[in-house]
Amino acid sequence: MSQAEGVLRRPRPLWSLGLLRSEITTTFRRWRTLALLAVLAGVPVLVGIAVKIETGDGGPGGGGGQGGPAFISQVTHNGLFLVFTSLAVTLPFFLPMSIGVIAGDSLAGEAHGGTLRYLLVAPAGRTRLLLVKYATTLTFCLVATLVVALSALATGALLFPLGEVTLLSGTSISFGEGLLRALAIAVVVALSLIGLAAVGLFVSTLTSSGIAAMATTVGLLITVQILDTIPQLSAVQPYLFPHYWLSFADLLRDPVYWDQLQKNLGLQALYAAVFGSAAWARFTTRDITA
């Protein structure tokens, strides 16, 4: 051991990013994460095959339009619509549930395994660790959404024709511009999840059981989703984080309706700020006894 060598080295600010890189690599190499992504990738395939079978059997074109997820009637005419349908199908539960698992487990799982104390004496720094965990969860939001979108695009391209996209307002845009809009929608969907990610992170600072934190986060999600459907609660509904989630469809209008989209993003930012601060206040003062 050469003591002097160690003392002389100067730490550099960039070295701090090593923890983020380690966290992202570790998260995406876990079987659990890969399984979540596999489930998310499977949803568009199932929806695509279901639509194909329905229309292939000589049914009434599957395009009744009443009932069923958004855009499903257009899928047979243009595979690109499978992207929108799949995001509309996964956004209420599948996507946020997977976020709940990742966010809920982020700190509680480390506490449960005892690795949290070793990260903290390394010293990772509580604020830095919290930021790294949140950044990793947000990365997962984006990756999960893109996995759904890409799987839907591939399935749609295989099973259905591609071509010009007819927007909700009736005008047509080229397939290329349609792809761009699909990408924009995926990003908006990912951003829709940052509020929930912050809630999950906060819950994760409260307990030393990863399972409890995941279950609580997912339970909260389901509760809020139910509250959002009760008409008598319309006064509070604009403050519930999933309330404007499906506003991403407004990106398929010409011109785009920004009103709900802005409300959605503003609400997510508010949740991220409030629950992020709560998580910080809790985590930086908490006794780590696990």
């Binding site: 090593g18 923890l19 380690s22 990772a124």
Partner: peptide
């Protein structure tokens, strides 16, 4: 070990 080392901001990657 690589992970614990990455958590130390003074550790040279």
């Amino acid at each position: 070990l690589r992970r614990f080392d990455a958590a130390d901001p003074d550790a040279d990657p």
